[in-house]
Design a protein around this nucleic acid. Sequence first.
DNA 1: CGTAGTTTTGATGTCAGTCAAAATGTGTGG
DNA 2: CCACACATTTTGACTGACATCAAAACTACG
Lengths: 245, 245
Amino acid sequence: MESSSHTTSCLDCRLADLCLPYGLQISEVMLLDKIVKAKRPIRTDEFLYVQGEQCRNLYAVKSGSFRSFIASSEGVEQTIGFYLPGEIMGLDSLQHGNFTCSTVALETALVCELPVTRLNELCAQIPSLQRQMMRMLSKEIVSDHEQIVLLGHRSAKEKMATFLLMLSQRYGALGFSDTEFNLSMRRQDIANFLGLSIETVSRQFALLNKNGVITIKQRGVQINDLTLLRLMIEPCSNERFSTAN
Amino acid sequence: MESSSHTTSCLDCRLADLCLPYGLQISEVMLLDKIVKAKRPIRTDEFLYVQGEQCRNLYAVKSGSFRSFIASSEGVEQTIGFYLPGEIMGLDSLQHGNFTCSTVALETALVCELPVTRLNELCAQIPSLQRQMMRMLSKEIVSDHEQIVLLGHRSAKEKMATFLLMLSQRYGALGFSDTEFNLSMRRQDIANFLGLSIETVSRQFALLNKNGVITIKQRGVQINDLTLLRLMIEPCSNERFSTAN
DNA sequence: CGTAGTTTTGATGTCAGTCAAAATGTGTGG
DNA sequence: CCACACATTTTGACTGACATCAAAACTACG
């Protein structure tokens, strides 16, 4: 999951086309690169930012992965999403200047810091950067909508299949295998994300494994039948394999 | 819910501070007003736009209300949200230029059409407009996150209370009563939005009505005890009133 | 006033949550 | 390298909240 060197600039970052530089001319990327602060390394379980905190920077994932969540006044957490390389974190804070969720590293990770003030100034100068920022904001909305659909009216089986397909698709887009990857999050995180209990997640994994649709060993997932997995997310009568569901 | 005249411009629209003109100087609002197309009237159940369609305009609600939803390939709908005056619709489409959801009027409504191309050009000219656009995109993200929390791990009772408080808060911000309003959506829409069945919604309304927390007559809601309603959304042990829950 | 749509109410079933304990994995210090 | 403690995951038994099915009551509108 590591990329090249620590000193890599936006100009030769292999994630550039998934990130802010997309659609920019080389001269514009150079301007952007100037305001990107140190690629700060974050350790597993370390917080990148905390809900309520003032937001001075947005963050782009350079390597590793993150989990963001909202905690209620009693401390009950709801996982909002997972972030993979090339994705921008903190976009929820642009409304009022404070983070509305907390974000924590699931594994050792690298992030690029984007100072909000300077980023805004640069957007005013570079129309294509402004467009790309809006596209990324819009992308976050679209992915939140997908999660709303997921949480709304899906069975545990459908949720699990959708979750795996979502990761498959995102890893694929990053140039990794879309059928074999490691889960950087714990069962607890998956359960919380999907609105399920940890036991249900475990049982559904076991079921998919028994059916042969996936092979799962700890954090390691291999998808054996992508087509069948896709068929599972259609919420109509789809009985196949296994002794009852 | 009707505002002044049909010919009202952004300059004297009473929703200006909740909408795109917020933070702009008068001269800038005049520029914005120039690109705002006809305040098109929409009838109940009429579609403003359909999922998949190319997006040439964003829309601001001037009066009335809307429901947006995503339909799966089999036609199963998930309501994503409701839009009230001052809110911008279509922000999900900025990523790829196509609407990712459909939007339908819940009652007779007026919208301001914002041509995307011209809006982008204007954002490049007016930094404060660009900032405001980003704030509104971010606001949509925050409200989507709230819905994710809602759908994630809440009981039917908590979902209903949150739904009522959400409307109360939004109507209040618009200058209407926050304790007495009409629901523009049907029970079916509420149920779908909250990930519940229509029967459960009906039963929960009946329960709240019996407890005296609200008085509900058809579409008309009166909140009698806002504090008690707020207490209900805390997902800890909160037994009060009524024979069992 | 009659028909169609919406909402309410009642009876029953089921999926996933909860509780509990075993199994497995992870890390630390001797 | 092993032993022990602690965390995570799996498996099993039971329960309950909400869905589903069915029908009645209410509204609205021509």
